[in-house]
């Protein structure tokens, strides 16, 4: 069973390009439909947990499902399985990349690719922005995060901790029924 966990998550890690969200359908297919390790409801629960805890969604769900199937050993094997393909592939590629990066044509291609990556980051911000609740509090927080980091006024970690505390205070006031904003 532990071996099957490892192998399943190894395949998921190997065949999903583009990170966490691309993995969700695969995880559903194997863990819910094929092997029935977890129910549909648990699956949704895992996604909610993965979204509210730090770290990659792939690692979060592998750990959770592994734990459900066979405890600590299961979570270790599933997590190892989902990460191992990346580690192997990237080690091979970086050895290769270091040799070719001084090639002039590779440099031309990467000059274009850097523009593409900036657009990927911009689009990620646009996409995440669309998923937020639209209210005054949210807008203020976006502007604050943007301006603080644009000029590197505060380290990222402090921005996260302080905004988390502000969020908790805001939430507690809201639950009490006070109209804060």
């Amino acid at each position: 069973m532990v071996l099957r966990l490892f192998w399943t998550f190894f395949k998921i890690g190997l065949f999903t390009f583009g990170g966490g969200y691309a993995m969700i359908p695969f995880i559903h297919q194997y863990a819910v439909e094929k092997y029935k390790w977890i129910t549909d409801e648990e699956f949704l629960n895992i996604i909610a947990i993965a979204e509210s805890t730090p770290g990659p969604i792939a690692i979060n769900s592998a750990t959770y499902i592994g734990h459900k199937v066979s405890g600590l050993k299961g979570s270790a094997m599933a997590t190892l399985g989902v990460s191992l393909p990346s580690i192997i592939i990237i080690v091979l590629i970086s050895a290769f990349f270091m040799q070719f990066k001084s090639n002039i044509y590779v440099e031309y291609a990467f000059k274009g690719i850097r523009v593409g990556v900036s657009i990927l980051v911009l689009n990620a911000a646009i996409r995440m922005n669309k998923k937020l609740e639209k209210n005054f509090f949210t807008y203020i927080m976006i502007v604050v995060g943007f301006s603080l980091l644009l000029f590197e006024l505060l380290p990222v970690i402090w921005v996260i901790i302080i905004s988390g505390i502000i969020g908790i205070v805001y939430q507690i006031f809201k639950l009490r029924g006070d109209d804060l904003v």
Binding site: V121, L132, M141, I142, V144, L149, S163, G167, I168, I172
Partner: peptide
């Protein structure tokens, strides 16, 4: 509550990285 504060701030932070990368 924590996530209510962190999520929008992170969006702003990622926007700032996008601007710098561009």
């Amino acid at each position: 509550g924590f996530l209510k504060g962190v999520k929008p701030v992170i969006v702003g932070v990622i926007f700032s990285v996008a601007v710098k990368f561009i």
